[in-house]
Amino acid sequence: MSNGDSTVPLLAARDLTKAHGRTEALRGASVELRAGEILAVTGPSGSGKSTLLHCLAGIVSPDAGSVTYDGQRLDELPEKRLSELRRTDFGVVFQFGQLIPELTALDNVALPLMLAGAPRKDAQAAAGEWLERFGVRGQEALRPGELSGGQAQRAALARALVTGPKVVFADEPTGALDSLATEQVMTSLVHTAREAGAAVLLITHDAQVAAYADREVRLSDGAVLPAGVTA
């Protein structure tokens, strides 16, 4: 079911090590993501999933190991280039707290385009289309505080996808939602990602959410488990 059309991975991490203070979050984790593939990263709390995502998305740099995206070493790029890359090639969705409460939903989704320099009218038009695709068109003038959890997450997804990224990073996107809202969000994510040909790295501890992916990778205590091991 994977749409990967080459065997060279789009995003690869090798032997990542990262410590927060005295706690080691990652110990030699390696993972690969192919173009257009949807990959689920699962594992118990504290296994280092979020840290892995942050390293792969270039948000933090690992203590050791390498992250390669499309042939370039992410951990060797300067912050300016990394920001630019995050703006054009990556989209990020977190569990909560990523929409700006002072802007309307429409402006929130149009934000990345405006930051890239597009005129407000064009940005809002593109944002409106994406909101429609996610089924939140009627709520675009509301502030995030007035949206329900599911609507806010779908708006966050729209914002992640509005720049046409090649990789979407989703960290527990449905963690705070009930099962129907989860289904809506995940269905939207999978369909639009496949349409746009974007790869998705999905972090979750819920097996039903992981079942939306093509492939699963399990983390335990900061390292990736080989296929035949449960714990």
Partner: peptide, 16 residues
């Protein structure tokens, strides 16, 4: 500070 972090997450560069 949280709002600024959200802006950064949306793709704004530090100088922006």
């Amino acid at each position: 500070d949280r709002r600024l972090a959200a802006l950064r997450l949306a793709g704004a560069a530090p100088w922006q």
